[in-house]
Amino acid sequence: MTTPAPLVSVIVPNYNHASSLPLTIPALHAQTYAPMEIVFVDDHSTDDSVAVARALGVEVRSTPRNAGPSVARNIGAEAARGEILLFLDSDVELPPDTVARAVQLLADDPAAGAICGSLDDVPLARDSLVQECRCLQAHYWRISSLGDVSFLFTAICAMPARVFAELGPFHEGLRQTEEVEYGERLSARYPIRLTDAIHGRHRDDHLLWPLLRKVFHRCRLRMPLYARRRRAAKGFETAARMWGSVFALLATLTLPLPALTGPVGALLPAALAVGFVASDAGMYRFVLRRRPRLLPAFLAVQWLLNLAIVAGAVAGAVQWFCSRPFRHLYENGPQPTRVPA
């Protein structure tokens, strides 16, 4: 007797991605796998997301107020009926065989707590040079970290519903680092696999200042977690990449040296700049092969991103020393799922 295929609940949290939904929702309707349900949760968007989603044929659930992706995902998981939960960001477009591949990957690897997918090197919508650079970085960092990781990459992430029930909901007190905290809990019990067998096109940040601000705050908010475990995440964030941020800061601080000491003073910032590139040399070689004309802009964006990272780390360290609530940011555990209005 044939075992029936498991129902997959695709949980799509959304906030202000109305312009992406005409690409991402039809891609879900085009999936080759069945049975499947779409659980779309709007996090109190201020654009036309709800109207667009309904026009595209999905039922919309809503958070009672803008509360962050943790709350939206928890509401979606509470409503889901599937044996497999597939969390998907609303600005990610999937190839038609993605759900089928995710189900097969979980079936082939019953020990896994979650299977996370990678992001393509070409963005969903080519809005800006910044977005092109950001998508290349996101793509390379994932494909260079394939295997077991301690992050939960929630842009595309499939997991058995029983594992989610065992771990509990996403931490609703966290907005920017909820996937890091959840990955910590999950990887302590089950392996998290990062694979390029499932992937999608992502609409990343297209404006430089909001991107730098987001990176700054994400790094700042991770400091209590890093201080508690005294190590970075497994995969993705490497010691060499952390040194790259330090090299970028030191090179920037030493830029005035040539004006003070003459041409010899240029040697130090130049050496630090070389160290910055060497810290993630594989990524820059990848960009040179894939998009050579983009390399100068890519280097500039990466330089600024690394300055934002080190600034966030410093700010987070200061806040950790000065604020007791900040030190215990991750220690309260996940909060109960909130019921939508």
Rank of each mutant, 00 (worst) to 15 (best):
D48Y: 02
V246N: 06
H139F: 09
E166K: 11
A259S: 07
M223Q: 13
L250C: 08
R285H: 10
S19I: 13
P296C: 05
M283V: 10
A278F: 12
A232P: 10
L7D: 06
I156E: 07
A18L: 04
R81E: 14
L249G: 07
D42L: 10
R327P: 09
V103Y: 00
T261H: 13
E83Q: 15
V314K: 01
R61I: 15
A300K: 01
L88T: 06
V122K: 11
C133M: 07
P258M: 07
I309M: 13
H328R: 14
D121K: 14
P191E: 02
E93K: 09
D108L: 10
T32K: 09
R142T: 13
A311H: 02
S187T: 03
Y15S: 11
D43T: 00
D205I: 11
W243E: 08
L56H: 03
V264M: 12
D127R: 15
G76W: 07
R231K: 15
T32P: 01
V99M: 09
R327Y: 08
W320T: 11
L28G: 03
V215Y: 12
W303N: 03
V149R: 08
T177A: 05
I25C: 05
F164T: 01
G316K: 11
P95E: 06
Y226N: 12
T3F: 05
E331F: 10
I198T: 03
G168W: 00
L194V: 01
Y182A: 05
D108N: 07
V339R: 15
G113S: 04
L257W: 05
A297K: 02
R218F: 09
T2F: 08
T254E: 06
H17D: 14
A67D: 08
Q335T: 12
R101P: 03
A51R: 15
T238N: 08
G173C: 11
S128P: 02
T63H: 02
L136E: 09
H29A: 11
P258I: 05
P110D: 06
I309A: 08
W320Q: 10
V287N: 03
Y15K: 15
R73P: 04
R134P: 00
V130F: 08
E37S: 04
A315P: 00
I156L: 10
N66P: 08
G262W: 02
C322G: 09
P160L: 01
R228M: 02
V50T: 12
G235V: 12
V92Q: 02
L307H: 12
E59P: 05
N14P: 03
R65M: 06
R201I: 02
G316M: 11
A227K: 12
A297R: 05
V339I: 15
P69S: 11
R193S: 04
L295I: 03
A125Q: 13
R290P: 08
Q137P: 01
V41L: 06
